[in-house]
């Protein structure tokens, strides 16, 4: 009897996931990706050009919720001290130590690469996937849900669509393909070393490959901290300029 109940329950469980809509999957992706109230990490960024030559960046990253982010570069010397503050409603500032002041940056910069990496300012934007993208279920393979994402009405993007590979076991978006306006594959984001730290899943290595330029940016996280009650003061121009 118990075996039958278990079988029915298991069947229902599988059916319920199989019946998840694309919106529900993307919402779960957001819940996993943006689960911590706040986070801090040190990032080592490795830039690899088409000839395999490597150069390095190091940065400190603070994030609170989904809409506040502060990045401060610590290496190399020629960009040391440069900071980038992203606030809700597309309000962004960059601090340039040479000019001793922060500068407001407009949204035109979204399609530009951030500090020589393969991430654009749009990729760094503090917005949840659900807020920006309208999902469509493409397929489910052995270990992934595959979603097709197009910009929601009223949202602009430099990409025509994203194809997202979401892990079925934990809803972590393991791979994202970015397509340009002409519909050609432009960039591939791959997340590796996905581990659970406390209650949260985190990818300790993220790679963005620009397939057109054959240039890759690999970001390795270190000293990651979640839910340390980061103060709102961190995400201010006052702190950006210090």
């Amino acid at each position: 009897m118990w075996l039958i109940v278990l079988l029915i329950f298991s069947l229902l469980w599988n059916t319920s996931f199989a019946q998840l809509t694309a919106d529900e999957i993307l919402k779960k992706v957001d819940e996993v990706t943006y689960a911590p109230k706040d986070q801090f990490y040190k990032a080592k960024v490795i830039l690899i050009d088409k000839n395999g030559r490597e150069s390095y960046r190091e940065a400190l990253m603070y994030q609170k919720g989904t809409h506040k982010r502060l990045v401060k570069f610590t290496e190399p010397a020629d960009i040391r001290g440069i900071g980038f503050l992203s606030l809700p409603d597309d309000v962004n500032y960059v601090y340039l130590p040479a000019f001793k002041k922060s500068r407001r940056i407009a949204s035109h910069i979204k399609n530009q690469n951030f500090a020589g990496t393969d991430f654009t300012y749009e990729d760094m934007e503090a917005l949840t996937y659900s807020e920006k993208w309208k999902p469509e279920f493409l397929r489910k393979d052995e270990s992934h849900y595959v979603l097709n994402l197009t910009p929601r009405e009223g949202r602009t993007s430099d990409y025509s669509k994203l194809v997202m590979y979401v892990r079925t076991d934990n809803f972590y978006p393991e791979k994202i393909e970015y397509y340009d306006k002409a519909g050609n594959l432009y960039k591939i984001l791959t997340r590796r070393k996905i581990q659970k730290v406390g209650n949260y899943w985190v990818a300790f290595e993220t790679e963005m490959k620009d397939v057109k330029k054959n240039h890759t940016t690999r970001m390795v996280l270190d000293d990651i901290k979640f839910d340390t009650n980061l103060s709102d003061d961190i995400f201010t121009v006052r702190n950006l300029e210090r």
Binding site: R103, R104, A106, S107, H108, I109
Partner: peptide, 11 residues
């Protein structure tokens, strides 16, 4: 003043 007008930075 400084801001964003339709994606264009203005000041």
């Amino acid at each position: 003043f400084a801001g964003d007008l339709g994606g264009v930075g203005v000041w």
